[in-house]
Amino acid sequence: MSAVLTATAVSKSFAANPRVLDRVDLTAHPGDFLAVAGQPESGRTTFLRCLAGGYRPGSGTVVLNTPNAGTVDLATAGARTLAWIREHHLRSFDGPLAAPPSQDAAAAVARAARVERSRATAALDRLGLARHADVPLGRLRQGVRRAVALAASLSASAPILLLDEPDTAADPGLVLDWLDELRENGTAVIAAVGPASPLIASASAAAYLHEGKAQWTRQ
């Protein structure tokens, strides 16, 4: 089975940290669950953003294989191409939704995931958030808003799902149940997690980021 996303020798630096990522590799196939673990400031979130096209790597490639547009290197793709990729092939969770504070949670999930309100409400219920469905986002605590955003990402249909610490936004057991369902349908899941995350044990492969380096281990 062909890989849907391949990162090769991805490096990234910032002025305050010249070696955040140092030639990090990743290969994701349909149905994979890859865990990228590390301490805070280890570069795990930076790597996820490089995979999503949010950050440009200093060097390396991030190649997405699509059934209708061939291969696309997200490390060099233009803004229009990235927007199209994020709409059709790749979804991310890395914080609260960018939505009006007056919009209720169900409406925000429906809009972000491009699903009907009934499905959005069911998604919130799956993460134990049913009582927040009709509450405006501006009235929700920050932690609940993160959970609402996670529900939106898990509800969206996409071949690749990138998640930044999903187990800190909702009950890990509920998250794993949903991820198992998505994987059975062919979604490749890549999650940045802490070193003690309960999600690591369920991953098909895991890597620990330290001083910019990553070593992958198949589970």
Rank of each mutant, 00 (worst) to 15 (best):
G143Y: 06
S13K: 14
L174D: 15
A214C: 06
A169R: 13
V175A: 08
A75D: 04
K12D: 12
E211H: 14
A188G: 09
L176K: 13
Q215S: 01
T8N: 13
A98Q: 12
P198R: 02
G43A: 12
S157I: 02
T71E: 14
L209A: 02
R141V: 05
Q215K: 09
L161T: 01
G31A: 00
E165V: 11
R139E: 11
A108I: 04
P172Q: 03
A9Q: 15
A112N: 08
R44G: 01
L51C: 08
D180A: 13
T27A: 04
V148D: 13
L97D: 11
D25I: 04
R141A: 12
P40T: 11
P198K: 02
G31I: 00
S102A: 07
A191L: 06
R131Q: 14
V63T: 00
T217W: 01
R86V: 06
P57G: 10
V109F: 06
H89K: 04
V175Y: 09
G53V: 13
A123W: 07
P166L: 10
D22C: 00
A37N: 00
A207P: 09
H210K: 15
D22Y: 02
A69V: 07
F33R: 15
L5D: 12
I85N: 02
V10Y: 00
A52F: 02
N17S: 01
H89C: 04
A106K: 13
D73E: 13
S204R: 15
L51R: 07
L176T: 00
R218L: 14
P159N: 07
A98F: 07
P30T: 10
S59V: 08
P18A: 01
L124P: 11
K12A: 09
A207F: 09
L48H: 03
S153Q: 06
R91Q: 15
E165P: 11
S153R: 12
D104V: 12
V115G: 00
E41N: 10
S102L: 11
E41Y: 02
E41M: 08
A113F: 00
L48G: 05
P101E: 15
R117W: 01
